[in-house]
């Protein structure tokens, strides 16, 4: 009972702090502190609820239990991370985004192809592509190659559509200016159209980060070597070892946020001129 009261108290205090912080919306420190306080409050309330309501470990482990498991099985988690996130997701992400980028530049030269491919690409981007996972696992075997293949297919279409859209971003006036400078196709592409396309390209890259991790993990449900985040999750669920599953989720969340954050940082460095990035130095 005291756990529950403590939980309610922590929630009230956390909310009160945030209400105070919200009175200074322009303050950068307050902007940073508010979500952190909220997150910490959530975790504390979770801890209190688990102990207070006597929830079984097999259903929902407390954050402290998860932290202990995380610290105790660093070796396993690191191996899984290498197998899934680096070998599977990252390889596939680089290959898929690279291929989509080059395809977009090739397609961009022909208006006919562009008009044909854009609707099809948009359609394909809305499809449940993850369903291809069992087929690709069948084709490329159980190891990381098949996971990379799933990731390639998953990130390809969002990246393609975004890049093609971005390449048509430079307007006629700017292109005419390049013509008056006697710039050829490649110079125009490199100096004007690719830079102008960058906000869109990075939009595609950012969408791809989460898709890549999801693709690599879900593909492991259809067959994997005895390592990998998806493998660990599905087998640990079978053994009801929820603390290990949650530790794996923490790894996935960290990897996902880190990946996204890295791309966002590169975006800020590359597209510093774009209105959405200005004034946030």
């Amino acid at each position: 009972m005291s756990w529950l009261i403590a939980g309610a108290l922590i929630w009230a205090v956390g909310w009160w702090i945030n209400t105070r912080l919200a009175r200074h919306p322009q303050n950068t420190a307050a902007q940073l502190a508010a979500p952190i306080v909220f997150g910490a409050t959530l975790i504390a309330v979770w801890e209190c609820l688990v102990w207070g309501l006597g929830i079984k470990l097999a259903l929902l482990p407390a954050p402290s239990v998860i932290a202990v498991t995380f610290a105790n099985s660093l070796n396993i988690l690191w191996g899984d991370f290498l197998q899934t996130a680096i070998k599977g997701a990252l390889t596939g992400y680089i290959l898929g985004c690279g291929a989509a980028f080059l395809t977009a530049i090739a397609v961009d030269r022909s208006d006919f192809l562009k008009r044909g491919l854009l609707p099809v690409g948009n359609f394909a981007a809305a499809l449940p592509i993850i369903g291809l996972a069992p087929i690709l696992v069948m084709w490329f075997g159980f190891d990381w190659q098949s996971k990379a293949a799933v990731v390639v297919v998953m990130v390809f279409f969002p990246m393609l559509v975004n890049t093609v859209q971005g390449l048509s971003e430079a307007d006629a006036m700017q292109r005419d200016l390049m013509r008056t400078y006697a710039a050829g196709y490649w110079t125009t592409l490199l100096k004007l159209r690719l830079p102008a396309a960058m906000p869109f390209v990075f939009n595609g890259l950012k969408i791809g980060t989460t898709l890549a991790l999801i693709g690599a993990i879900v593909a492991e449900f259809f067959g994997s070597p005895i390592q990998g985040m998806g493998f660990r999750i599905s087998t640990s669920v079978g053994r009801l070892a929820m603390d290990l599953v949650w530790a794996e989720i923490v790894v996935a969340a960290l990897a996902g946020s880190g990946f996204y954050g890295a791309v966002a940082l590169i975006e800020r460095a590359v597209t510093f001129w774009h209105p959405s990035q200005r004034g946030r130095t």
């Binding site: 508010a34 991790l213 999801i214 993990i217 879900v218 998806g230 599905s234 989720i249 996935a252 969340a253």
Partner: peptide, 21 residues
């Protein structure tokens, strides 16, 4: 100020991966 960042962060968790759990 406090919920919006977490809404965004919630999507970096590959939820599909924990679907079985």
């Amino acid at each position: 100020m406090s919920v919006m960042p977490w809404v965004i962060a919630s999507q970096t968790i590959p939820i599909l991966a924990i679907a079985p759990m």
